[in-house]
Design a protein around this nucleic acid. Sequence first.
DNA 1: CTTGACTCCGTACTTGACTACGGAATTACC
DNA 2: GGTAATTCCGTAGTCAAGTACGGAGTCAAG
Lengths: 136, 136
Amino acid sequence: MQAEPDHLPIGRFAKAAGIGVEAVRFYQRKGLLGEPERPPGGIRRYGQADVARVRFIKAAQRLGFSLDDVAQLLTLEDGTHCSEAAEFATRHLADVRARLRDLKRMEAALSQLLAHCDSQHGSVACPLIASLHGAR
Amino acid sequence: MQAEPDHLPIGRFAKAAGIGVEAVRFYQRKGLLGEPERPPGGIRRYGQADVARVRFIKAAQRLGFSLDDVAQLLTLEDGTHCSEAAEFATRHLADVRARLRDLKRMEAALSQLLAHCDSQHGSVACPLIASLHGAR
DNA sequence: CTTGACTCCGTACTTGACTACGGAATTACC
DNA sequence: GGTAATTCCGTAGTCAAGTACGGAGTCAAG
């Protein structure tokens, strides 16, 4: 049958999303990803929206969010009632901003290291620990 | 004996750093943290520099770095020869910048959600997935 | 100088996030 | 329409990052 971009069987879907077939099923069990309807005596098909969803999951994970965090973020995406959404979003936003602060400090420390390194050779230390001082 | 800030026994040290005693030993086994000398028939003592080091480890983890990544970052802190340092630092810097980009997008999406949410009640969706589109 | 808390060190268990396996059903290709 | 590749689904194993346990040695308060 058609393997067009919005009727991908699980194997192609997983490849398109950059994960394994087993990981797809794992995310479905965790509730991060829906199981498309299975036509009687047929197989499930996946679309581009599913691919984007998985890419988001992987991106958020790289930013240090657990799958439980990602699940909450996805409920925001999916549209919850405003009052609950605001609560989650506020908390996650504070979290995101704290991470941003630390990452910026880290970027500064690393790029200063490189600047030093370029200009003179020998050995240099990088005050990474000090740069995040006051972090929590 | 003295329990002054630079002669902490492992229990106080762990508490000061916000982790458990077992985690301290675990980081030592991983090489993230040195084992202070043990005076013959005595116990090891830890100082503020160790506390700061552990705090850095935890902060970096929250930013999505694995302990192996953190180990590399710490070699920069500890001061390596410039040529190797530059290589690591360049790679990590690119990584940090990619994360920064994604986090900024996420921050924008979340704060927009809140802005919408404040101004009108009912249900709102948050285009988080779309906000990271083009992420890797 | 004893007693209770703490340290040391090795091994084993737990949790989160997958990854692998295997047998029955479905699909795709010639 | 047969057969090789996929899918399905359940169970089990793996790896990272800890956490817990336990017995022998050390410290510190009375």
